Amino acid sequence: MTTQDELRLLPWAGPDGKPCYPSTDDQGGYVSRLADHIEAFQLGMASQLLEHSSQVLDDETEDLEELHLLAAKLTSALRDVLRVATSRGRGPVARARP
């Protein structure tokens, strides 16, 4: 979690996809509660998507278009989960090399 003097990374992007931080808020303020709600929703969606992806990958009849859509949704969910982890102080310290 962020300490009192740290800015919280919000679970949505600002203009041009840049990180968004509240200019002023407290732990129980409206923006903080909204961010908590959105983070919980994003994590729940990622969990459901992970379950769905297992089903899609187990089905050998899935076509390339379905797999492409799944990859796009997984990429978006992973981006959201990493933003939540970073916001909570547990984000990646260094980027892994491909």
Rank of each mutant, 00 (worst) to 15 (best):
Q42W: 07
D36Q: 08
A85F: 06
F41Q: 00
D5G: 02
H37G: 14
L74E: 08
R33W: 01
R83A: 02
E6R: 05
E60C: 02
L10A: 00
G29I: 03
T86C: 11
R33P: 01
D36R: 14
V56A: 00
V56D: 00
V93R: 12
G28I: 09
V31R: 11
T75C: 12
D25P: 09
G29L: 03
G14A: 06
S47N: 15
L49I: 11
Y30K: 06
P15R: 05
Q42M: 07
Q55C: 02
L9C: 02
G44M: 02
H52T: 00
L70Q: 13
F41V: 01
H52V: 02
A72E: 04
A71M: 14
Y30F: 11
R8D: 10
T75A: 13
L7Q: 10
L82D: 00
L78C: 04
C20A: 06
T61Q: 14
L7S: 01
C20G: 02
P19Y: 07
R97I: 04
T3Q: 14
L64D: 15
A94V: 09
S87V: 07
T24W: 15
A13G: 00
E66C: 11
S54C: 09
E39K: 08
T86R: 13
E65H: 14
L78G: 09
K73A: 09
L43N: 13
T24Y: 07
L82E: 11
Y21D: 00
T75L: 08
E66T: 15
P98V: 05
Q42E: 02
K73G: 01
V56E: 00
A72G: 06
D25S: 11
S23T: 12
W12V: 04
D63N: 15
A77H: 09
T3V: 10
P15A: 03
F41N: 00
Q4H: 12
D36L: 12
P98E: 13
E65M: 04
A96Y: 13
P92Q: 10
R83M: 01
H68R: 14
L67S: 03
L7I: 04
Q55N: 06
L7P: 04
T2F: 15
A40T: 13
C20D: 04
L57G: 04
S53I: 05
P15N: 03
L43G: 06
E60K: 05
D58I: 07
T75F: 03
P11Q: 01
P22R: 08
T24P: 10
T3R: 15
V31G: 12
L67M: 13
A96S: 09
T2D: 13
R8T: 08
Q48G: 10
I38P: 08
L50A: 07
Q27W: 08
E66V: 03
R83C: 00
S87A: 12
E62K: 11
L67R: 14
L78T: 01
L78R: 11
L67I: 06
Q42I: 02
D58H: 08
G17T: 07
L49K: 12
E62L: 03
P15F: 04
